[in-house]
Design a binder for these strands. Structure first.
Length: 593
RNA sequence: GGGCGCGUAGCACAGCUGGAUAAUGCGUCGGCCUCCUAAGCCGAAGAUCGCGGGUUCGAAUCCUGCCGCGCCCGCCA
């Protein structure tokens, strides 16, 4: 309720001055009321107690007596040492109906020259299909992208393609040296690929990768394979175009398959940047050169080079190696080159990384600092576990995103079929797809990223309150009302605000609660974006949907064939806010469901 | 062993820069469809905020010790 702040400050200022409080420190003490029924903004008076030698509640009472309510703040009360200010119903209704709440659009970049943000997320090795654990990165990252756009930032999303490491080399080696029969023989003790995904290249080619991994553990073949792979890695690091091309031919179909899965979740990227670029264009060797001149630089016996980050306060492992004994670079070195390049593209960087990358990320940031660069904001997330324990492709203990999406859609279809008997199969399929994918996204977004949560099918497929369908349902109700009104010949036009406001309407509690939820909507968005915590905004949207439902219950927009214009205006603005917020979270807004 | 993170009702999860009766969902119990989509709404029961110390007028929130869980501690990516 930041919109109320200046009004409250104006009221408080003279009253506090009269008590002898003349500095502005109290302004930062005004905060959003915890007790929603007491007020919107509150001033705790405890801090004044000593200075004024008065009890806090006495101070609050004195202030209350000294302040006159007005059209904006029409309720001031003092309880237990708090002075509470509540926005006036009519003022708030007028404020919102007049179109003062910013709606935003998560699908476009602002063009007003605002801050440009480069968000790198997912960047998974292109060697196999997404399981729910790996997909947490993509869902969090894409949501941050969307919320930044909704907030008004200029955003570019990037996938950093690891096109030259050992993992890709293993895949390329396997594809060149093994045929399908051999692969299936090697993997005969494992679960076969779900036939539904047999022709999907991420599910298909990962078999070659897995078979190669098995062979790499086989003592009789290990040597020969390691040598071959080692040569490929080495060649790729020297920028050997032929090898890099064979790598690309190996991983690109896999990556395409993975992106197909993300696409179904409405996750897209603006740019794909290949790791090898920074080797072939000389950036990496330039950086290694620069690093070797730093005072915290060190050289190991075999010529490998590192930075002593312990000298800069890093605890635990202090040596950060950026160059191997053979002179080649390491993943982190290339990542540093990538970051420096990223800073030539944008003002601010955000990375989304698994918690296993914390140390690595810290090393990269500290090194960037040494080189005089800014450091990225990083959102770390914990892993998703299964009830049986850690997710592991090797043990067959995984839930693939493709399977989850199918399952979610099927479950949604069941629900729709049961309660909407008049819908066509096509309609049901469309709704089920939207509900299924939205629910999957939302279940991951709504929990705090640093919480390691356990994946459970019954929860992933729960469409009750606290889920995407709950929000979608509220939105659908608002669309249904708009359609009915339009059928009656009444359409909401934002320009008519002044006319609508000429007819005062009764504002019941539940409508007031909705208005308050709308008034705090952008406060929540700001917090969510500034702190890179999508779950905060997910919560806001649940809150908004919840209050819309209360409004829906008590304020009939259409009654006896007559449209209440004020209610319709509020319903429509709430609807827009729900819609833009849903798109911000990657939830698909439907007209009917 | 060291570093980082987490620990809130039977389960899951929220709690913004310390503040008033710790929010919400699932599950349990009870109520609401002649009226804009009941995937909804209303009500009840259910919490020593891991344990101990400290700072403060005030701590789930900050500091510290311990316990439990996760991740990391490669010249891998």
């Amino acid at each position: 309720m930041e919109i109320l702040r200046q009004h409250v400050e104006a009221l408080l200022s003279p009253a506090l001055a009269a008590l002898g409080i003349n500095n502005d420190h109290w302004k930062s003490m005004i905060s959003v009321s915890r007790e929603k029924n007491m007020g919107d903004l509150s001033l705790p008076c405890f801090a004044f107690a000593k200075q004024l030698s008065m009890a806090p509640n006495e101070i609050a009472e004195k202030l209350k007596a000294a302040i006159e309510t007005n059209d904006v703040v029409d309720d001031i009360n003092s309880t237990a040492g708090y002075l509470n200010f509540k926005a006036s119903r009519n003022w708030l209704a007028e404020y919102i109906i007049s179109g003062n709440i910013r709606i935003g659009d998560a699908e476009v970049n602002s063009s007003d020259g605002s801050k440009s943000v480069l968000i790198e997320h997912t960047s998974a090795n292109p060697n196999g299909p997404f399981h729910v654990g790996r997909a947490r990165n993509a869902i969090l990252g894409d949501t941050i992208v969307r919320l930044n756009r909704l907030y008004g930032n200029n955003v570019r999303s990037e996938y950093y393609v690891d096109d030259m490491g050992k993992q890709v080399a293993v895949l390329a080696w396997a594809l060149a040296n093994l045929d399908a029969k051999e692969v299936e023989k090697i993997l005969s003790d494992r679960e076969p690929v779900n036939e539904m995904w047999e022709s999907k290249p991420d599910h298909n080619r990962v078999r070659w990768y897995q078979a190669a991994q098995v062979l790499r553990g086989d003592d009789s073949k290990k040597h020969e394979i390691e040598k071959a792979i080692g040569e490929m890695v080495h060649a790729s690091e020297n920028g050997d175009h032929e090898v890099l091309l064979s790598f690309e031919n190996a991983y690109q179909p896999v990556l395409d398959g993975m992106l197909e899965t993300l696409n179904r979740l409405r996750i897209n990227f603006d740019e794909f940047t290949k790791e090898s670029i920074f080797v072939t264009n000389g950036d990496v060797s330039n950086i290694m050169q620069k690093l070797s001149t730093l005072e915290i630089h060190g050289i190991a016996e075999n010529g490998a080079e590192y930075l002593d980050l312990g000298a800069r306060g890093l605890k635990g492992k202090t040596e950060f190696y950026y160059k191997r004994g053979d002179g080649s670079s390491l993943y982190a070195t290339r990542d540093i080159a990538y970051h420096i390049w990223k800073y030539t593209q944008c003002d601010k960087l955000i990375n989304v990384l698994g918690e296993d990358h914390k140390l690595q990320s810290k090393q990269v940031s500290m090194t960037l600092n040494e080189l005089g660069h800014d450091t990225p904001e990083v959102l770390f997330y914990s892993f998703i576990k299964l009830p049986e324990g850690k997710m592991s492709t090797r043990k067959g203990n995984v839930v693939f995103m493709d399977d989850l999406l199918e399952e979610a859609k099927a479950h949604a279809a069941e629900v729709v079929k049961e309660i909407r008997t008049d819908y066509s199969d096509e309609q049901i399929s469309h709704i089920a797809e939207a509900v299924g994918t939205s629910a999957v996204r939302f279940n991951i977004i709504k929990v705090s990223p640093d919480k390691g949560f356990t994946f459970r099918w019954e929860e992933a497929l729960s469409f009750d309150a606290d889920s995407a369908p709950f929000i979608m349902y509220s939105h659908t109700r608002s669309r249904s009302i708009a359609k009915k009104c339009s059928d009656l010949g009444v359409a909401y036009q934002p320009e008519d605000a002044a006319v609508i406001l000429q007819n005062p309407t009764n504002i019941p509690d539940s409508m007031f609660e909705l208005l308050r939820a709308m008034a705090t909507h952008n406060d929540a968005l700001m917090r969510s974006v500034e702190q890179n915590r999508p779950n905060l905004f997910a919560n806001q949207l649940l809150n908004l949907a919840n209050h819309y439902n209360g409004f829906y219950r008590d304020c009939k927009v259409i009654s006896n064939g007559e449209v209440n214009q004020t209610y319709l205006a509020v319903s429509e603005i709430a609807s827009k806010l729900l819609r833009s917020g849903m798109i911000g979270l990657g939830i698909e807004p439907l007209e009917r469901m």
